[in-house]
């Protein structure tokens, strides 16, 4: 069972995780983008951890919605609207709920990823965060269908997300700023897919 406390622990963990990966995410972005991804993620999640701890909304839907609005305001770049949309769509699956179970968690992630897909219009293979998200949510659904609990579902998500993230290294980008490089983007790991996997790992470490 996941309660508001676990969701808040996830938010705090995201703040810490992006802080400790700020330089590496920014370096990945410098190679094929514009060298701001780590900086932007830290700005967004630090603000979120601070604001939400000062005034924690009453239910999971409200926490995720508040998180979404903070990210849209603070992150900027493409990742602001994309992660903002992820949490906004996710929040709609658990309005008014103070606890959710394994299937709710799968539905929450599926809705969030559907939001990213719709807003960013990227497909798998375009070398974007979608390359981590799509296999991760498929693995979550499979793990749940196979009788997995929250912990097993999130471990499956991390593992599939990591494979998807690693596969971006050999891809040529077709969406986002890296697409301007075309073939020259091959050989570099996508920063968005990398920050997506960090988000899944933080979920695994706090929600299960």
């Amino acid at each position: 069972m996941i309660r508001c406390e676990e969701i808040m622990a996830w938010v705090r963990e995201l703040d810490l995780v992006y802080q400790s990966n700020k330089a590496s995410l920014t370096e990945l972005d410098a190679a094929i983008g514009d060298a701001d991804h780590g900086i932007n993620m830290v700005r967004g999640f630090s603000a979120a951890a601070k604001e939400l701890s000062e005034q924690t909304p009453p239910d999971i839907g409200a926490i995720l919605k508040a998180l979404a609005m903070i990210l849209m305001k603070k992150v900027g770049g493409a990742s602001g609207p994309l992660y903002g949309t992820f949490f906004l769509k996710a929040s709609m699956t658990c309005n008014g709920r103070t606890s959710i179970g394994a299937e709710d968690l799968v539905v929450l992630f599926e809705a969030g990823v559907a939001g990213i897909r719709q807003r960013g219009k990227a497909k798998e293979g375009d070398k974007t965060m979608i390359d981590a998200w799509e296999p991760a949510v498929r693995a979550m659904r499979e793990a749940f269908s196979g009788g997995g609990d929250v912990s097993e579902i999130l471990r499956a998500a991390v593992s599939a997300g990591e494979s998807g993230r690693d596969a971006t290294i050999s891809l040529a980008a077709r969406k986002g700023r890296a697409s301007y490089l075309g073939e020259r983007s091959r050989g570099h790991q996508d920063p968005g897919a990398t920050s997506a996997v960090l988000m899944l790992k933080a979920a695994r470490d706090t929600l299960a």
Partner: peptide
């Protein structure tokens, strides 16, 4: 104006 090299936000 956004942050350096980062788009401004909707708000």
């Amino acid at each position: 104006p956004g942050a350096i090299f980062t788009s401004p936000t909707p708000d």
